[in-house]
């Protein structure tokens, strides 16, 4: 049984089948990339897996559990975290607060004990803070800790979003175009971080990417989508050479 197993997944919006009978499997510990031209259905696929949308058909299994019909907030605690293509941070909160929100699934105390801020709540807060500081160290965010997201440059926001996902201590991380809009150095850093996250933290990574350089560097296997359907699967080199993939990209241009 694969770690993440997607089978015959489909969803339509109006007349468009945005994701059409898509199946693939991701093994524990690998970096798996999803590529495809604009509108191929990559983001929609992520939204299906993470529970934002519920599919018209098919199934998603994660770590041996059927999560097809679970809402997003019940999937996250199972160890699945994600980022968004267009950045969805908590704009009016600081970096620190954003990361602390990422620890939500690890809370232990109740709202009633929060009203009184019992000593146990303080201990828990300190514990969250320590874990968040580890992420801040890893992603070199110390400089921005107290800044509001609204005042941060784009590149830093991208990193904060990855950081927030890491604060969940996920087992599986879905990254939707982690390097889009980044300059070459920032992209390079992001590539290293993805490798670190995968190797040192042992997180399985599924990422959507347009940047084939990044894909060939970090991803073991690649899935290519076009118009909602799987058109190729294999190593980065194989998929890049696949005629259907070449056609899809040329056709889209």
């Amino acid at each position: 049984m694969s770690y993440l197993a997607v089978e015959d997944l489909s969803i339509s919006f109006g007349g468009i089948r945005a994701v059409d009978d898509v199946s693939f499997a991701v093994e524990e510990g690998e970096v798996f990339a999803i590529i495809g031209p604009n509108g191929a259905g990559k983001t929609t696929l992520f939204n299906l897996v993470s529970g934002i949308y519920s599919p018209d058909g098919g199934s998603v299994r994660f770590a041996g559990r059927d999560i097809t019909s679970l809402p997003a907030h019940r999937i996250a605690p199972l160890g699945l975290a994600r980022t968004f293509q267009n950045i969805e941070l908590f704009e009016h909160a600081t970096v620190l607060q954003n990361l602390l929100i990422g620890r939500h699934v690890h809370r232990r105390s109740t709202a009633l004990s929060h009203l009184l801020f019992l000593p146990a709540v303080r201990r828990e807060e300190l514990e969250h803070r320590r874990r968040v500081e580890d992420v801040i160290d890893l992603l070199e965010l110390a400089h921005y800790r107290e800044q509001r997201i609204a005042n941060l440059p784009y590149g830093v926001r991208k990193v904060v979003e990855v950081g927030r996902a890491l604060c969940l201590e996920p087992k599986l991380l879905l990254l939707d175009e982690p390097t889009s809009g980044l300059n070459p150095e920032e992209s390079e850093d992001m590539g290293f971080w993805i490798e670190d996250i995968n190797r040192d933290l042992g997180v399985t990574v599924v990422m959507v990417a347009h940047d084939m350089g990044l894909v060939s560097r970090v991803a073991g296997r690649v899935l290519a989508l076009n118009e909602g359907r799987v058109i190729a699967e294999g190593s980065a080199a194989e998929v890049q050479k696949n005629p259907a993939v070449v056609d899809a990209y040329l056709g889209a241009d």
């Binding site: 704009e91 929100i101 709202a111 801020f117």
Partner: peptide
């Protein structure tokens, strides 16, 4: 009491909902 709520996970969840419902859901709120 209100400030206590705000400095704990309950208050942060509220702020999260204010700023992005979709992200809030995705972190398990």
């Amino acid at each position: 009491a209100a400030l206590n709520i705000l400095r704990s996970s309950t208050g942060r969840a509220m702020v999260a909902i204010r700023d992005s419902e979709i992200s809030a859901e995705s972190v398990g709120i």
